[in-house]
Simulated assay, not measured.
Amino acid sequence: MAGSSAAGEFPKFTALRALTGSATPHVLVKFSGADASPTVTRWADLLVCEHLALECARTLPGIASARSRILIQAGRTFLEVERFDRHDRLGRSPLCSLDTLNAALLGKTPGDWPTFADALVAAKWLGDGDAQRRHHLWWFGRLIANTDMHLGNLSFQPTQGRLCLAPTYDILPMRHAPLAGGELPTDEVEPPLPLPRQRAIWLAACQAAVEFWSRVGADTRISEGFRRLGLEHGQRLQTLAEQV
Protein backbone atom coordinates (compact mmCIF):
# COMPACT_ATOMS: atom_id res chain seq x y z
CA MET A 1 0.00 0.00 0.00
CA ALA A 2 1.13 3.56 -0.68
CA GLY A 3 2.81 5.04 2.34
CA SER A 4 3.66 1.66 3.84
CA SER A 5 6.59 1.64 6.25
CA ALA A 6 7.77 -1.50 4.44
CA ALA A 7 8.45 0.41 1.23
CA GLY A 8 10.38 -0.81 -1.81
CA GLU A 9 10.01 -1.99 -5.38
CA PHE A 10 8.05 -5.17 -4.62
CA PRO A 11 4.48 -5.36 -3.33
CA LYS A 12 4.53 -7.13 0.02
CA PHE A 13 2.51 -8.12 3.04
CA THR A 14 3.22 -9.26 6.59
CA ALA A 15 1.95 -12.59 7.89
CA LEU A 16 1.97 -14.89 10.88
CA ARG A 17 2.47 -18.55 10.05
CA ALA A 18 3.50 -21.78 11.74
CA LEU A 19 6.43 -23.62 10.15
CA THR A 20 8.45 -26.37 11.79
CA GLY A 21 12.05 -25.33 12.37
CA SER A 22 11.53 -21.60 11.89
CA ALA A 23 12.89 -19.12 14.44
CA THR A 24 9.74 -16.98 14.44
CA PRO A 25 6.20 -17.15 13.03
CA HIS A 26 6.50 -13.55 11.76
CA VAL A 27 7.33 -13.10 8.08
CA LEU A 28 7.44 -10.43 5.41
CA VAL A 29 6.32 -11.71 2.00
CA LYS A 30 7.25 -10.15 -1.34
CA PHE A 31 5.59 -11.38 -4.51
CA SER A 32 5.69 -11.03 -8.28
CA GLY A 33 2.92 -10.53 -10.81
CA ALA A 34 1.13 -13.53 -12.30
CA ASP A 35 1.75 -13.15 -16.04
CA ALA A 36 4.67 -14.32 -18.16
CA SER A 37 5.74 -10.93 -19.52
CA PRO A 38 9.51 -10.19 -19.57
CA THR A 39 9.07 -7.56 -16.84
CA VAL A 40 7.18 -9.84 -14.46
CA THR A 41 9.55 -12.72 -15.22
CA ARG A 42 12.54 -10.56 -14.32
CA TRP A 43 10.97 -9.49 -11.01
CA ALA A 44 10.26 -13.16 -10.26
CA ASP A 45 13.90 -13.97 -11.07
CA LEU A 46 15.07 -11.27 -8.68
CA LEU A 47 12.97 -12.66 -5.83
CA VAL A 48 14.73 -16.00 -6.20
CA CYS A 49 18.04 -14.11 -6.45
CA GLU A 50 17.32 -12.38 -3.14
CA HIS A 51 16.77 -15.75 -1.49
CA LEU A 52 20.07 -17.04 -2.92
CA ALA A 53 21.94 -13.86 -1.97
CA LEU A 54 20.77 -14.13 1.65
CA GLU A 55 22.09 -17.69 1.74
CA CYS A 56 25.45 -16.78 0.17
CA ALA A 57 25.90 -13.73 2.41
CA ARG A 58 26.08 -16.11 5.37
CA THR A 59 29.35 -17.50 3.96
CA LEU A 60 31.04 -14.14 4.62
CA PRO A 61 33.05 -13.80 7.87
CA GLY A 62 30.71 -13.12 10.78
CA ILE A 63 27.68 -12.25 8.63
CA ALA A 64 24.18 -13.38 9.58
CA SER A 65 21.21 -12.92 7.26
CA ALA A 66 17.45 -13.20 7.39
CA ARG A 67 16.13 -16.70 6.73
CA SER A 68 13.94 -17.02 3.66
CA ARG A 69 12.22 -19.45 1.34
CA ILE A 70 10.67 -19.34 -2.13
CA LEU A 71 7.09 -20.41 -2.86
CA ILE A 72 5.60 -20.56 -6.37
CA GLN A 73 1.83 -20.69 -6.73
CA ALA A 74 -0.73 -19.69 -9.39
CA GLY A 75 1.94 -18.15 -11.62
CA ARG A 76 3.38 -15.96 -8.87
CA THR A 77 6.73 -16.19 -7.12
CA PHE A 78 6.67 -15.43 -3.38
CA LEU A 79 9.70 -14.67 -1.21
CA GLU A 80 8.96 -15.29 2.46
CA VAL A 81 11.50 -13.69 4.84
CA GLU A 82 11.53 -14.39 8.58
CA ARG A 83 11.54 -11.21 10.67
CA PHE A 84 14.41 -10.89 13.14
CA ASP A 85 12.79 -7.77 14.65
CA ARG A 86 10.03 -9.92 16.15
CA HIS A 87 10.08 -12.64 18.80
CA ASP A 88 7.48 -15.04 20.18
CA ARG A 89 3.93 -14.25 19.09
CA LEU A 90 3.61 -10.60 20.11
CA GLY A 91 7.17 -9.48 20.92
CA ARG A 92 9.02 -6.70 19.11
CA SER A 93 12.82 -6.54 19.15
CA PRO A 94 14.69 -3.18 18.94
CA LEU A 95 16.18 -2.35 15.55
CA CYS A 96 17.72 0.86 14.19
CA SER A 97 18.34 1.48 10.49
CA LEU A 98 21.55 3.22 9.48
CA ASP A 99 19.38 6.02 8.10
CA THR A 100 17.92 6.63 11.58
CA LEU A 101 21.31 6.34 13.29
CA ASN A 102 22.81 8.86 10.90
CA ALA A 103 20.05 11.36 11.65
CA ALA A 104 20.34 10.84 15.41
CA LEU A 105 24.08 10.37 15.94
CA LEU A 106 26.17 11.38 12.91
CA GLY A 107 24.43 13.95 10.73
CA LYS A 108 26.49 13.06 7.67
CA THR A 109 25.54 13.62 4.05
CA PRO A 110 24.50 10.41 2.23
CA GLY A 111 27.37 8.04 1.48
CA ASP A 112 28.23 4.35 1.33
CA TRP A 113 27.91 1.77 4.10
CA PRO A 114 31.65 1.51 4.96
CA THR A 115 31.93 5.28 5.46
CA PHE A 116 29.10 5.31 7.99
CA ALA A 117 30.28 2.11 9.68
CA ASP A 118 33.73 3.65 10.17
CA ALA A 119 32.11 6.81 11.57
CA LEU A 120 30.13 4.75 14.10
CA VAL A 121 33.35 3.03 15.16
CA ALA A 122 35.08 6.41 15.60
CA ALA A 123 32.14 7.55 17.76
CA LYS A 124 32.46 4.31 19.82
CA TRP A 125 28.94 3.16 18.98
CA LEU A 126 30.15 0.21 16.93
CA GLY A 127 33.03 -2.24 17.36
CA ASP A 128 35.77 -2.74 14.77
CA GLY A 129 34.54 -6.26 14.04
CA ASP A 130 31.06 -5.14 13.00
CA ALA A 131 32.49 -2.41 10.78
CA GLN A 132 34.74 -4.98 9.10
CA ARG A 133 31.76 -7.24 8.48
CA ARG A 134 29.93 -4.42 6.74
CA HIS A 135 32.93 -3.85 4.48
CA HIS A 136 32.67 -7.49 3.44
CA LEU A 137 28.93 -7.19 2.87
CA TRP A 138 29.26 -3.95 0.92
CA TRP A 139 31.75 -5.51 -1.49
CA PHE A 140 29.57 -8.59 -1.82
CA GLY A 141 26.63 -6.36 -2.71
CA ARG A 142 28.63 -4.50 -5.33
CA LEU A 143 29.88 -7.76 -6.87
CA ILE A 144 26.35 -9.14 -7.22
CA ALA A 145 25.24 -5.87 -8.86
CA ASN A 146 23.19 -4.61 -5.92
CA THR A 147 22.62 -0.93 -6.65
CA ASP A 148 20.11 -0.50 -3.81
CA MET A 149 22.43 -0.38 -0.78
CA HIS A 150 20.88 2.74 0.73
CA LEU A 151 20.94 3.60 4.43
CA GLY A 152 17.54 2.03 5.07
CA ASN A 153 18.82 -1.37 3.97
CA LEU A 154 21.37 -1.69 6.77
CA SER A 155 20.34 -2.01 10.41
CA PHE A 156 21.77 -2.48 13.89
CA GLN A 157 20.47 -3.85 17.15
CA PRO A 158 21.13 -1.74 20.28
CA THR A 159 22.46 -3.67 23.27
CA GLN A 160 24.07 -2.45 26.50
CA GLY A 161 24.79 1.03 25.16
CA ARG A 162 26.41 -0.18 21.94
CA LEU A 163 25.28 -1.24 18.49
CA CYS A 164 25.51 -4.74 17.06
CA LEU A 165 25.14 -5.64 13.44
CA ALA A 166 21.64 -6.92 12.60
CA PRO A 167 21.18 -9.78 10.13
CA THR A 168 21.39 -8.81 6.49
CA TYR A 169 18.20 -8.30 4.47
CA ASP A 170 16.98 -6.94 1.13
CA ILE A 171 20.12 -7.79 -0.85
CA LEU A 172 19.75 -8.71 -4.53
CA PRO A 173 21.11 -7.70 -7.99
CA MET A 174 18.92 -4.62 -8.46
CA ARG A 175 21.13 -3.46 -11.31
CA HIS A 176 19.18 -5.98 -13.41
CA ALA A 177 15.72 -4.79 -12.32
CA PRO A 178 13.32 -3.63 -15.06
CA LEU A 179 13.53 0.05 -15.90
CA ALA A 180 10.71 2.46 -15.08
CA GLY A 181 9.00 1.84 -18.42
CA GLY A 182 9.18 -1.92 -18.04
CA GLU A 183 12.18 -2.51 -20.34
CA LEU A 184 15.00 -4.77 -19.21
CA PRO A 185 18.49 -3.24 -18.88
CA THR A 186 20.85 -4.43 -21.60
CA ASP A 187 24.15 -2.66 -20.93
CA GLU A 188 27.18 -4.53 -19.56
CA VAL A 189 27.86 -4.60 -15.82
CA GLU A 190 31.54 -4.16 -14.97
CA PRO A 191 32.56 -5.65 -11.59
CA PRO A 192 34.29 -3.08 -9.35
CA LEU A 193 37.94 -3.65 -8.44
CA PRO A 194 39.55 -3.00 -5.04
CA LEU A 195 42.34 -0.71 -3.95
CA PRO A 196 45.43 -2.62 -2.75
CA ARG A 197 44.45 -2.21 0.93
CA GLN A 198 40.99 -3.66 0.15
CA ARG A 199 42.27 -6.78 -1.63
CA ALA A 200 41.72 -9.34 1.17
CA ILE A 201 38.15 -8.19 1.85
CA TRP A 202 37.41 -8.01 -1.89
CA LEU A 203 38.64 -11.58 -2.44
CA ALA A 204 36.46 -12.94 0.38
CA ALA A 205 33.44 -11.08 -0.98
CA CYS A 206 34.26 -12.20 -4.51
CA GLN A 207 34.29 -15.85 -3.46
CA ALA A 208 30.78 -15.46 -2.02
CA ALA A 209 29.65 -13.57 -5.12
CA VAL A 210 31.00 -16.28 -7.46
CA GLU A 211 29.04 -18.84 -5.44
CA PHE A 212 25.93 -16.65 -5.71
CA TRP A 213 26.16 -16.32 -9.49
CA SER A 214 26.86 -20.05 -9.79
CA ARG A 215 23.66 -20.80 -7.87
CA VAL A 216 21.73 -18.34 -10.04
CA GLY A 217 23.01 -20.17 -13.13
CA ALA A 218 21.87 -23.54 -11.78
CA ASP A 219 18.48 -22.65 -10.24
CA THR A 220 15.63 -23.79 -12.47
CA ARG A 221 13.19 -21.45 -10.70
CA ILE A 222 15.00 -18.66 -12.58
CA SER A 223 14.38 -17.99 -16.27
CA GLU A 224 16.83 -19.47 -18.77
CA GLY A 225 18.02 -16.07 -19.96
CA PHE A 226 18.86 -14.84 -16.48
CA ARG A 227 20.54 -18.14 -15.62
CA ARG A 228 22.89 -17.60 -18.58
CA LEU A 229 23.56 -14.07 -17.35
CA GLY A 230 24.39 -15.43 -13.90
CA LEU A 231 26.91 -17.89 -15.31
CA GLU A 232 28.56 -15.10 -17.32
CA HIS A 233 28.86 -12.91 -14.23
CA GLY A 234 30.34 -15.75 -12.22
CA GLN A 235 32.93 -16.61 -14.87
CA ARG A 236 33.96 -12.95 -15.19
CA LEU A 237 34.39 -12.62 -11.42
CA GLN A 238 36.38 -15.86 -11.22
CA THR A 239 38.75 -14.56 -13.89
CA LEU A 240 39.15 -11.24 -12.06
CA ALA A 241 39.86 -12.99 -8.76
CA GLU A 242 42.75 -14.86 -10.36
CA GLN A 243 44.23 -11.56 -11.58
CA VAL A 244 43.76 -9.29 -8.54
Rank of each mutant, 00 (worst) to 15 (best):
I171F: 13
P194R: 02
L137D: 03
Q238S: 04
G127N: 10
H51I: 00
W113F: 02
Y169H: 10
P25M: 05
R83N: 03
E211I: 00
A104N: 12
A117K: 10
S5K: 07
T186W: 00
I201H: 11
A34F: 08
L179G: 02
T159W: 15
L46V: 09
V27F: 12
L179M: 09
K30T: 00
L120V: 01
S5I: 03
L184I: 10
F31W: 13
L60G: 11
S37V: 08
A34Y: 05
Q132E: 14
L151K: 11
F212C: 03
D45L: 05
A57M: 04
P192A: 13
S65D: 02
G21T: 03
G91C: 08
D128P: 01
A208I: 11
P185H: 06
H51Q: 05
A145V: 03
L143H: 08
D88L: 05
G21M: 14
Q132A: 08
K124A: 03
L163D: 02
A204G: 07
L143M: 14
F31H: 14
S65E: 00
N146G: 10
L237R: 06
D128S: 10
G181K: 12
A15Y: 03
A204R: 12
D148K: 07
D35P: 01
L237S: 00
T186Y: 03
E224H: 09
E9R: 15
P110T: 06
E211K: 12
C96G: 07
T41H: 05
S68H: 07
